[in-house]
């Protein structure tokens, strides 16, 4: 029975890790422009991009 508590704990830990990753990506602005990157790849010559803010 105790194994269920342990499993529950670990599954929640993993889920929380993914949640943290999501919160980080949302905060760093990865969802701000979802259409741009698909167009940007059509650019022929690529140059070094300055890091985004």
């Amino acid at each position: 029975m105790n194994i269920i508590f342990l499993l529950l704990f670990f599954s929640l830990l993993i889920a929380a890790a993914f949640l943290a990753a999501f919160v980080w990506s949302a905060k760093s602005g990865q969802f701000e422009d979802v259409e741009g990157p698909a167009m940007r790849m059509l650019r022929e010559e690529r140059k070094k991009q300055t890091t985004n803010s």
């Binding site: 929640l12 889920a15 993914f18 949640l19 999501f22 919160v23 949302a26 905060k27 969802f31 701000e32």
Partner: peptide
């Protein structure tokens, strides 16, 4: 400025609902 907080809230709400 658009805020990303909306996406974040949606993500957290989704996470909470799933669990």
């Amino acid at each position: 400025r658009q805020h990303s907080s909306e996406v974040m809230k949606l993500g957290i709400a989704g996470f909470a609902m799933g669990n």
